[in-house]
Design a protein around this nucleic acid. Structure first.
Lengths: 172, 172
DNA sequence: GCGAGAAATTTCAAGCTTAAAGTTTTTTCC
DNA sequence: GGAAAAAACTTTAAGCTTGAAATTTCTCGC
């Protein structure tokens, strides 16, 4: 659709331009990382909506709960999902309404809310998760097994670097 | 702060668990990608707010405009930023109010809105972009130059795979 | 030159997200 | 055991985001 023959997409990376300082590679890396994850996320979001009339935040929440047989405390959900607790209050409320999760006040500590999958929620999640796996597989299918493993490894290093930096200067 | 000695963070990746199908590596890769980009994004967002009282979407918009001397049509901004046009209407409006960008109706096509940086906006962006480069550099500093280049390369392959998949099945 | 359709943008309703402030409950420490 | 601090969560205000519907303007074919 654009003038550049053959290609009809553009994004932030299209012209990285030289960086003001010498963080050129860092910025290029960051933009590429962001582009990849935005592309995947947008597609997953679209498919969840179209195929299941579900949103990604809801799906993410169910995904966390699936591995917690006994349910999970709201605060831990917040950490694992890397979103604020305030966010979860309303999200959980909507999922309770739709019957996917239950919310119970802890019997031993009345401040604590325990969130758990219902049977319905578990079944719904399983179905969506299967398809989700296929979608991701499709998106990544042109990547060789070797590249996949290499990426997982390299991203592991990146993650450690980020965590280290956050832990060091995090207080500021 | 949690019970597990030494480490006080957890996230979605902490237990990847075996995948339902055999997309195990794909899902692991996707989760790791998402974790890295969420960590960086959250930190950038926090610093922009604290240091400049600015938001990431605003910053992203200015970043796109910086490379367009003549300004940019709203539709192209939308493609480059990978966000909906409806989103931009309000975002641009707020940036016009704060004096960072100007909005002009194209003289040759009255449907078209041309958005451009003001001098004030350009100066503000330059300052933020410099710092932004430092932040990213800090977050990535434990990564060797070799790893950085490898990641850029591998992510390039991933991006091509995603684009190809979207282009192929995209119509659905 | 006019009508159908396409294109660019805006509006709208709904939901997500955050930080900060507020509430309730528990823990800590005299 | 009681006050003060901490912890878990909710509320609030503001802004971001989307998809779908509506609006305005242009283009194309006749």
């Amino acid at each position: 659709m654009t003038e550049q023959g053959g290609v009809d997409w553009i994004d932030s990376e299209t012209k990285v331009a030289e960086a003001p300082a010498d963080h050129g590679d860092d910025l290029r890396l960051w933009l590429r990382l962001l582009t990849c994850s935005t592309l995947v996320e947008t597609e997953v979001r679209r498919r969840l909506r179209e195929d299941f009339d579900f949103t990604l935040p809801r799906f993410d929440l169910l995904a966390q709960l699936e591995r917690a047989e006994q349910g999970m405390v709201l605060g831990e959900l917040s950490k694992r999902m890397m979103v604020s607790a305030g966010n979860l209050t309303a999200l959980v409320e909507r999922l309770v309404e739709s019957g996917h999760v239950s919310r119970t006040t802890s019997p031993t500590d009345r401040r604590v809310q325990i969130i758990a999958l219902t049977d319905f929620g578990r079944a719904a999640f399983r179905e969506m998760a299967d398809r989700h796996g296929d979608w991701i597989g499709d998106l990544f299918k042109d990547l060789s097994a070797r590249d996949r493993v290499a990426l997982i490894d390299e991203l592991g290093k990146l993650k450690r670097s980020i965590r280290a930096s956050l832990a060091a200067g995090g207080g500021s």
